[in-house]
Design a protein around this nucleic acid. Structure first.
Length: 435
RNA sequence: GGCGGUAUCGUCUAGGGGUUAGGACGCAGCCCUCUCAAGGCUGAAACACGGGUUCGAAUCCCGUUACCGCUACCA
């Protein structure tokens, strides 16, 4: 049998998929795909108290969302308990382990244990520095460092790629491989992901589960792109990877860093914006479709094309899909308009001018033939009007923008008018004259 | 404490004996422009510290410091 690459992601089902775990899974998957090998999933469910079907499902959903497909059937660690016990008994019989107070303890060899890590190069420990440790508890349940070895062996894992918090466990595991008569696999320890305070990312840093980012409107391709660049880089200055294939092509274990990275939410959002603005409107529409009714946007009544157009116009400004949904919502449901402080400032600066501008605009826009209610013509009409009024274009564009959105920021006003539509635009302008 | 690991702008990172130490996010300014975004240009911003090796160290070696991990009959 050719030694094809076989890697695994082995989370314990704690109820969510941590971004650190997701990044580790991504690296494993990328490596497997690049090598034409297999990516396996093993659920470390030996801790029954913390495990449940739902928890497992959350992990599977998270991996699926990220596009990391698993090649073989999921392995549940708990299912191998008799095998683990037999292996421990074998070590006991061979004198490589001993019984004490009912538990089976592994006898650590008194020699140097070293390996060439694919990321860290050579790492060495003295066996004498490591205490003997329990492999089978007195209730006959196996412990972590033992089951990992037993299962990686059983699954034919060739490369153990995991967080560098496992470096200190590695000599124990290597000793078990040897006691069992096997060569250890290649170890690939990847650096941790830290929070902004430099400490291991945890719940007090806010969102740490990939599910949280999904809920917050992050695109899976953006999350992947971002995670891939945490602790790895392609060796050139490319940062934008719009497809998972590009990532597979670029990925290599050699370029995994040794240093922990800080999770930078701002950069994730920027990246997400980059992805959103390059995602086709209909794909974006599919993502926000379920949010729209809650925002009072009824697609059937408006016509799908109109909503799609609004999505297209807004996508280059949105950083999350929620952001996008909200912007689209405001265009079709006046009840969603909330005046921003900047808008209030603009109005308060010269309320009479604001109202006068809107009055003139309202009067002029009314005369526009509905058939000519399109950006180019609208811009001409408004510029002409500004001229007549002796105003700079901004003198009327800005009041319209505020009237239509409650904000001083939007797409170009002529486009905005088109998106909102003639009737609704006129109503909003009329209403804003009371502000 | 012991053992192991890490150390380039605030953050993600490139580089690696002789460089104006490069890019990206963010920040500031300018351009574009009806605002914003996008884009373009510019700016502020880094080799943790101390020794050594060397003609020359951010780069190699040692030490210190800081941080991280392991040190469970958790995983």
């Amino acid at each position: 049998m050719p030694d094809t690459v076989r890697v695994r992601f082995a989370p314990s089902p704690t109820g969510y998929l941590h971004v650190g775990g997701a990044r580790t899974a991504l690296f494993n998957w990328l490596f497997a795909r690049k090598a034409g090998g297999q990516f396996l999933l093993r659920i470390e469910d030996t801790d029954k108290a913390r495990s449940s079907e739902e928890h497992v499902q959350v992990i599977i959903d998270g991996l699926g969302w990220l596009g990391l497909d698993v090649d073989e059937e999921i392995v549940y660690q708990g299912a191998g308990i008799t095998r683990h016990q037999a292996l421990a008994d074998r070590l006991l019989a061979e004198g490589k382990a001993y019984e004490h107070e009912g538990a089976i303890w592994f006898r650590m060899p008194d020699e140097e244990i070293a390996w060439v890590d694919a990321v860290y190069d050579r790492i060495a420990f003295q066996g004498s520095d490591i205490k003997d440790w329990v492999i089978l508890r007195s209730d006959r349940s196996p412990t972590y460092n033992f089951t990992v070895v037993a299962d990686d062996l059983e699954m034919g894992v060739t490369h153990v790629m995991r967080g560098d918090d496992h470096i200190s466990n590695t000599p124990k595991q290597i000793a078990v491989y040897r006691a069992l008569g096997h060569e250890p696999p290649t170890f690939v320890h990847v650096p941790m992901i830290h929070g902004p305070d430099g400490k291991k990312l945890s719940k007090r840093h806010g969102a740490t589960a990939v599910g949280d980012y999904r809920k917050e409107g992050i695109l899976p391709e953006a999350m992947r792109n971002f995670l891939a660049l945490l602790g790895w880089n392609p060796g050139n200055e490319q940062e934008l990877y719009f497809t998972i294939e590009e990532l597979v092509d670029a990925f290599s274990i050699e370029r995994i860093l040794k240093k922990a990275a800080v999770f930078d939410l701002t950069k994730l959002e920027w990246l997400n914006g980059q992805h959103i603005s390059r995602t086709p409107p209909d794909a974006l529409f599919a993502l926000i479709e379920t949010e729209l009714p809650d925002k009072g946007v009824h697609v059937a009544a408006l016509g799908r094309e109109r909503v799609l157009h609004a999505v297209e116009v807004q996508r280059e400004r949105a950083r999350t899909t929620h952001d996008l949904a909200h912007r689209v919502g405001v265009r079709f449901n006046a009840a969603l308009i909330e005046r921003t402080p900047k808008a209030d400032t603009l109005i308060a600066k010269d309320r009479n001018a604001f109202r006068a501008a809107l009055a003139a605009v309202h009067e002029r826009l009314q005369t526009v033939d509905p058939g000519r209610w399109e950006p180019e013509h609208l811009e001409q009409v408004l510029r002409d009007l500004a001229d007549e009024l002796g105003l700079k274009p901004g003198g009327i564009f800005q009041p319209i923008r505020v009237a239509l959105t409650g904000d001083t920021v939007s797409e170009p006003v002529n486009v905005l008018l088109e998106v909102v539509g003639k009737t609704e635009s006129l109503e909003r302008i009329e209403a804003a004259r009371e502000w």
